[in-house]
Design a protein around this nucleic acid. Sequence first.
DNA 1: CAAAAATTGTTTGTACACGAACAATATTTC
DNA 2: GAAATATTGTTCGTGTACAAACAATTTTTG
Lengths: 140, 140
Amino acid sequence: MSADGYRLEEQIGFLLRRAHQRATAIFAARFAGYGLTPTQFAALAKIADEGEVSQNRLGRLTAMDPATMKGVIGRLSERGLIAGRADQEDRRRTQWRLTEAGSALLARARSDGFGVTDETLEPLSPRERATLLRLLGKII
Amino acid sequence: MSADGYRLEEQIGFLLRRAHQRATAIFAARFAGYGLTPTQFAALAKIADEGEVSQNRLGRLTAMDPATMKGVIGRLSERGLIAGRADQEDRRRTQWRLTEAGSALLARARSDGFGVTDETLEPLSPRERATLLRLLGKII
DNA sequence: CAAAAATTGTTTGTACACGAACAATATTTC
DNA sequence: GAAATATTGTTCGTGTACAAACAATTTTTG
């Protein structure tokens, strides 16, 4: 153990990294059949909510850097799950929406999203689950 | 909003990703002068605790994949912060320890580690902080 | 209106993160 | 002791994550 009492296991960053790793692993297992990563699924779900959305705005809604967003958009677009069109009002923008294929895939995958949260929170009581979500919400 | 009530903002994975992003940003700001990433700092701290440790064991202690660990070890080693020696008893292993430079850097940086946790948890009361750490510990 | 500032999106470079396949070496099992 | 199994570490490929520098376009300000 460290001389001055620094314990890695008690640092919030380390705990968040490990918890996120576990959540990601559970997601990967449940979404293996869809070939979607957590960020790709988040992007699809948000595009569905918005109907049509620009790349930058989608990045803000899903908490992704513009550079990261570009990669995610590119992969979804290559797979034909989303399609973009040039915005007439602002020529810097591209507006993105779900394709038929994207909509169909999201419809099938969506219910599994709840399963991921349920399995990740399985060690906690209902009350503890609500507390954890609330406290995480406060430190974001 | 989604037709079937799926709200991205209430999914544990999304919350963990965002919370981790914030903790990482705070870490980056406070550790800018040291040129250390969270994982590199975690590795240094654990090597210090252990005295000497193999790559695989260090990976388990810091929750890193062997492939990830290899990259982290490589960068710390290139900077001369750690040094490895071949294990006589098990010829597959390399044992890693801090160099003088690594030890000195860690000594300077260590106290800032507490600052990262403090700033990240700043929106919470002391009681809430303890609860969050406890609940995160349960879902890892 | 013209200059300044902000926004949108791209590119490059560095650093995790992990699955999969692999070689070398140790350990276990029969 | 030989075969089966496990462990240690490497390499490759894909996918986040973000800083920094940049071009194009739009909005704000004086």
